[in-house]
Design a protein around this nucleic acid. Structure first.
Length: 833
RNA sequence: GCCCCGAUAGCCCAACGGCAGAGGCAGUGGUCUCAAACACCAUCCAGUGUGGGUUCGAAUCCCACUCGGGGCACCA
């Protein structure tokens, strides 16, 4: 009902809150996103978003990732795919346990209350989840299979126990995996991590190091490069050699010690050996006279946190072990030292020190007056490291290196030394990984109990499968759960005391629980049938749906969750349970929602409350703001956003629906061609933009279409033109990906039945993508001098002829000889004079 | 120290190696109004962080640097 003023007679706005309430009920009845509803012939696509941890209500970060993820899932539905888009909760973990201690409750109380709150918020937020696949990792029905998988891994030798110095968080009173220690601090609470010697369960991820590395090649292009780089970095493959050194012990015997080095070619420059002070080896080889000194030193090292250890300015420290080792190529005796700069759990825990060509070794040599011998003459070095105390690591010519002398090729030097060592039986070429086994025991309550019984007679006995799940006791609460350095389960007498499944005698349950990352390493498979009884997942469903076609989530899981899930999938593959080796074919990492340049935090007081934003602007405007903010990978600074602008745009789009007067079902054939072209061009372009995850541009294109449609109605073909209906219906369908409530309101106003979410993607008419004429640009020396309206299929020769005949071009050339003419029909001619 | 990513208008961001501007925010002027809000119309605004190179032509490709963000780090 436009008048010449452009004002509408009808109410210029609609009530977003009322729309939200209304459509939610309709959608719940229609259940439009139930998997299988696209028909039996539809291609299947699994859309997955990282499931939330139930701490409180949803926050801005959830709002962002879900909005982005939903664009893909809803687009797939519109394109006719059968989409699996499930939701569940990663519901074991520390916050619930800490809340239980505070409130004198069981952790389940907090957990399941928050899950309900979040579920309600997700529904209001209008995400296209299939709620029938809902799961919670803290349900016995779920963790039964987490435990089952643990037992299978154990059977395959992939879950084992060992004594080892482990990362200990003194605040959370539990051990941590390497992946959970960030800069020497607990990833969760920020406390400084210390070391403890404990007997713990591990998953043997290291067996899969090479495959985890190799299989990443197939993910290149569909996973962010940065995530692949981080995983490669974490796995840390390095090539080198194992070299054997004989140590003459104080009692006259000889002990062979193997070191790992990436520079076996510098072996002639090895002038001493260093072993990790806290490794067994140090205690085993130390001379009696030095035993006390070593013990004192180790005590100092133990006390130091990783923070101290990691400081590179820290002066080198160590203890002479009072024994000597024989350099296998020179035959020279060299002293053996212990130091904390050598790590017990990397390589072999012992190194050959080549001070001339390794700065750390040189610093150590200098601190203790040990000899330095240069064996590589590096041409552009600033001087001899023996004098400058600057180690040279570059390429150069070998000197003081026996048979290598004069050689100037590092690769050749390395392979020659390895050949020599292998011939002498003193070493081998080898590959070393930085990755270490995954420590999965946790001394906390709210996790899946490790399904093992310790029997005084039979030892370690797995709980039989038919006795799974080993349920958590439900009668512990509050103070019962306080961390004591051992799991609270150890004090639950009724729970921990059991009978041995093997001999029937009295025995104790393993009282540790599993790292919650075990739970999340396989949940995507459980979604396929969360109530499946015959195994952790239905293998037939896995064949149908896996791998996940698109995974969306935060980059904070680049190593932890994603590496562990890849590991699990490979093990399941080796067990013959799945027929693929990678769980997630494509990965999208959204950025963070920040405020005023900084991450939102309580201490900064810059938090933005999602519920308040929704109350103020409505769900659609918040979602639209998230999607429109910029490329999905970029951080969104909420302070730079204008959700009010999103509201304005949605109202503007919505008003279009009220202006359409052509009846429902009117063919757009014969409608205004310019508007039809704009509509079809937009739809076509959006298809490609969504494939490329450029959702912000999708919104911009939709805005553009709204603008041209507005113009067509007010000052063009008028509201009755069938092209207007076609355009507005396209707008509603485009908006259904981002702003489902507004889209539904529009769809209804246009006279359609709900739901627009399943209306189907309009068919793009290729004939409408071709323009009658295009503008060709004529440049002289790269500067635009003229524009020509030409047919899109003009030949290069014709275009060149036209261009050269143009008066402006003739004037610009000004009689100069033409050296070259570049023609790119139909868009450009460049004349070089 | 090593490895990634980024830098375009006051701000958020677009631009198959081919006219630097799609969209939005903010601003300015107008229409409407008693006035305002809303809405609508119009409009202002940078030569793409710096320096080189490749090319007929570079925001785009290459090299070096600056700044910002992130990851790894006594890893032998």
């Amino acid at each position: 009902m436009s008048e010449q003023t452009g004002r509408t007679d009808e109410a210029a706005t609609y009530d977003m809150t009322a729309a939200q309430e209304r459509w939610r009920k309709v959608w719940e009845e229609l259940d439009p996103f139930r998997v299988g509803s696209a028909g039996p012939d539809a291609e299947k696509r699994y859309a997955l978003t990282m499931f939330p941890y139930p701490s409180g209500d949803l926050h801005m970060g959830h709002a962002e990732v879900m909005a982005l993820h939903d664009v893909i899932a809803r687009y797939w539905w519109q394109r006719g795919y059968d989409v699996l888009n499930p939701i569940g909760w990663d519901s074991f973990g520390l916050p619930a346990e800490n809340a239980a201690i505070r409130n004198d409750e069981h952790p389940a109380t907090y957990t399941y209350a928050n899950i309900e709150t979040q579920a309600e918020s997700f529904r209001r937020y209008g995400i296209s989840f299939d709620w029938s696949r809902r799961l919670h990792t803290s349900d016995p029905e779920y963790y039964r299979w987490t435990q089952w998988l643990f037992l299978k891994f154990r059977e395959r030798g992939l879950a084992y126990r060992k004594n080892s110095p482990v990362n200990w968080c003194p605040n959370d009173q539990t051990v941590l995996a390497n992946e959970q220690v960030v800069q020497g601090m607990c990833e969760r609470c920020g406390a400084e991590v210390t070391k403890r010697e404990l007997n713990q369960w591990y998953f043997k991820v290291t067996d899969y190091a090479q495959r985890l590395l190799d299989d990443m090649d197939a993910l290149a292009g569909t996973w962010p490069d940065r995530v692949l780089a981080m995983q490669r970095n974490w796995i840390g493959r390095s090539e080198g050699a194992h070299v054997d050194f004989d140590i003459s012990l104080a009692d006259g015997s000889t002990r062979t010690v193997t070191v790992f080095t990436t520079r076996p070619d510098t072996l002639y420059g090895a002038t001493f050996m260093v072993v990790a002070a806290d490794a067994k080896l140090a205690a085993e080889v130390v001379a009696p006279a030095q035993q006390a000194a070593l013990a004192a030193y180790v005590e100092d090292v133990r006390k130091a946190t990783d923070i101290d250890r990691l400081s590179t300015e820290r002066p080198k420290s160590g203890v002479d072990l009072g024994v000597t080792a024989v350099n296998p190529v020179t035959g020279e005796r060299m002293p053996v030292w212990a130091s904390d700069y050598v790590l017990a759990d990397y390589g072999t825990g012992a190194i050959m020190a080549v001070p001339a060509h390794d700065q750390r070794d040189l610093d150590f040599a200098r601190a203790f007056g040990l000899p330095v011998r240069r064996v590589v003459d590096v041409p552009d070095a600033e001087g001899n490291p023996e004098e400058t105390f600057v180690a040279t690591t570059g390429d150069g010519t070998y000197v003081n290196s026996g048979p290598l002398d004069g050689l100037a090729d590092k690769a050749a030097g390395i392979s020659r030394i390895i050949e020599q060592l292998e011939a002498d039986g003193r070493g081998t070429g080898t590959v070393n990984f930085r990755l270490r086994d995954w420590l999965l025991s946790r001394q906390r309550f709210w996790g899946a109990p490790i399904p093992v019984v310790h029997c005084p007679d039979c030892g370690e006995v797995p709980v039989p499968e038919d006795q799974l799940p080993v349920r958590l006791p439900d009668d512990l609460r509050g103070a019962d759960l306080k961390p004591k350095g051992v799991s609270p389960l150890a004090a639950a007498e009724a729970w921990v005391n059991t009978e041995c499944p093997a001999c029937g005698g009295p025995a104790k349950r393993d009282s540790d629980t599993m790292d919650t990352f075990v739970d999340s390493s396989w949940y995507y498979l459980r979604y396929l049938d969360p109530h499946y009884e015959d195994g952790p997942f239905d293998p037939a469903q896995a064949r149908e749906w896996m791998p996940v076609a698109q995974y969306v989530g935060g980059v904070e899981h680049a190593i932890l969750h994603l590496l562990y899930s890849r590991f699990f999938t490979k093990v399941l593959h080796d067990m013959g349970m799945v027929d693929f080796v990678e769980p997630f074919s494509a990965l999208l990492n959204q950025g963070q929602v920040i405020n005023q340049g900084k991450a939102m935090s309580k201490s900064l007081g810059n938090g933005v409350n999602l519920g308040e934003m929704i109350d103020r602007y409505g769900v659609d405007a918040v979602r639209l703001t998230m999607v429109f903010a910029g490329p999905p990978e970029d951080d969104i600074d909420w302070a730079d956003m204008s959700p009010g602008g999103a509201v304005k745009f949605l109202q503007r789009a919505w008003r279009l629906a009220g202006d359409v007067t052509a009846p429902v079902g009117t063919s757009a054939e014969g409608g205004d061609v310019a508007l039809r072209r704009a509509t079809h061009k937009t739809l076509h372009e959006v298809e490609q933009l969504i494939e490329g995850h450029r959702f912000n541009v999708v919104v911009a294109r939709t805005m553009e279409l709204v603008n041209v449609t507005r113009k067509a109605i007010d000052s063009g073909c008028g509201p009755a033109d069938p092209a207007v209906r076609e355009a507005v219906e396209a707008v509603a369908i485009l908006l259904s990906l981002v702003a489902p409530y507004t889209a539904e309101e529009m769809w209804e106003r246009l006279g359609h039945q709900p739901t627009v979410a399943r209306a189907g993607w309009p068919t793009v008419d290729p004939a409408l993508l071709v323009e009658d004429t295009v503008t060709a640009v004529v440049q002289i020396q790269g500067k635009v001098k003229a524009r020509l309206e030409v047919a899109p299929d003009i030949s290069e020769a014709d275009l060149e002829q036209l261009a050269m005949a143009d008066p402006a071009v003739v004037r610009a050339i000004d009689g100069r000889p033409v050296r070259k003419v570049v023609v790119r029909a139909p868009k450009l001619v460049n004349v070089v004079v």
